[in-house]
Design a protein around this nucleic acid. Sequence first.
DNA 1: CATGATTCCGTATACCCTACGGGAACTAGG
DNA 2: CCTAGTTCCCGTAGGGTATACGGAATCATG
Lengths: 286, 286
Amino acid sequence: MEEFSPRILPLLWRRSVPARKAVGRPPRLTIDLVVSTAIRIADAEGLEAASMARVAAELSVATMSLYTYVPSRPELADLMVDEVFWARDLRGEGTFRERVRHYAERTFAMYRAHPWLAEVSRARPPLGPGMLAEQEYVLAAVATLGLPLRQLNPAATAISAWVTSAARHEAESALLRRTTGLSTDEWWLQRGELWESWFDVEAHPTMTAIWNGGAFDRGADEQAQDAYEYGLGLLLEGIERSAEHDGTERSAELEGIERSAEHEETEPAAELEGIERSVEGDDRVP
Amino acid sequence: MEEFSPRILPLLWRRSVPARKAVGRPPRLTIDLVVSTAIRIADAEGLEAASMARVAAELSVATMSLYTYVPSRPELADLMVDEVFWARDLRGEGTFRERVRHYAERTFAMYRAHPWLAEVSRARPPLGPGMLAEQEYVLAAVATLGLPLRQLNPAATAISAWVTSAARHEAESALLRRTTGLSTDEWWLQRGELWESWFDVEAHPTMTAIWNGGAFDRGADEQAQDAYEYGLGLLLEGIERSAEHDGTERSAELEGIERSAEHEETEPAAELEGIERSVEGDDRVP
DNA sequence: CATGATTCCGTATACCCTACGGGAACTAGG
DNA sequence: CCTAGTTCCCGTAGGGTATACGGAATCATG
């Protein structure tokens, strides 16, 4: 059984690998230089601008030369993404809330510095050190609460999905402001005709009521921020609550998930003390 | 003060406008035909496939002819999006939970039928009837709880963001499966090398513990679904809870938001009964 | 039949990615 | 110094994309 193994993993993990002995014509560039140049262009002008031709030109090299360093364009994008994820450098300690706040702050800062991240799909992300560092950090944050092992992953995934979703939304807004020259509020203002000419009051009673109540007076971006903070608060409260009364009240709902957990349920974080270092078993299906 | 008014609004709301008197050369096509053709192509082959040239070819018309019906490609995308949003046809009644469930089901169904929706940015969406119908439906669902007026929008936005985010993720997964020929699990399997050669156990103790506890045994798509349902449960519970004890416990946090609400706070849904039909005032900044 | 309105569309420009294959530049070993 | 092996560099060519512009075609009306 011949299995295809993608060429991207050694590139993503290139920092974990010792330098190869020099043989053959010496390269003019390095992968890191290519990646950082692409990131710099994308920061300034968006992901599309960081084309193979453009990156090569920036490095005073022919387009095709880049293909010695990177298999193809999508792989370059993967490398760019994992680079900035790795540079996010999550290392805050403290309580659950403090860690989540640190994660959120760093993530928003990352998307502000590199708004093109919002132009990259989040499905099947680059499996490099940056991505795994995020996973580990958020899981560790949730683990401080002492939740049952099987609940860590859903909780951590919910948190990172919520935070990332908001950061991406903000980044998209920034991108659009740059490409269109219009802020979100200016964009809305330009569409005032919607309310004057097209909006049907009778078909939208709730919106109209909120409107008349004056609850639409914040800008669109601010409303999104409000919703983000409101939702994050609910998620964190809910997760903390399910840690407090240890699955007694909600056990009925969770039974399906916890069914096959055979590890100590009273002290769920105990596994984190004595970690089995072996990763040799091949019965893992991620 | 000359204000630019976008040409897209009359197209989005074309169903609300009476037919124009026929004068000049009669058109061979209609906007609806163009839009539905583009949707059909995108359904089958993705958004990129629905290029101007391709849609025109499908209609046996020259590429440039489409520009009589649609100002440009982005506007065509807007029309496609609002078309399927409108066709989602949200009309379930019932309790808060029932309405949210209906909204979620219809939304997932929509993204399954039109996975290319995940390829379109959610920022600055088309302001057509479909988009507004969604807003109204979710707001009305939340309004059944009797929340204070100023809390309706954050709650509704949180719900729709969470549901949409999950539906988009599933759709992206489907798109990737089609373009790459690999399911998400096959994609992971192909990257088994990650665990064998690159994963650093000591740097990722929490992941390793979860691993050894066997809590990673579900497929990636299933894990995402778990996180979605878990998070949705927390959001709905939290929203319901804040409706039960009417802002007594959380009033400190909410004070900043509720500050300028001068409408009856004890019966917050009262505005929905007697709606002021006037939308003439121009002091609204959406 | 003339006029005005509207639709139709050919051409031209400027991007994008990358398969292929040959030449250039280096090291190691003799 | 010479040669083999290895690796890097890159020119060409082909098939995509969106749309500005201007003129021809086709209708209702007067």
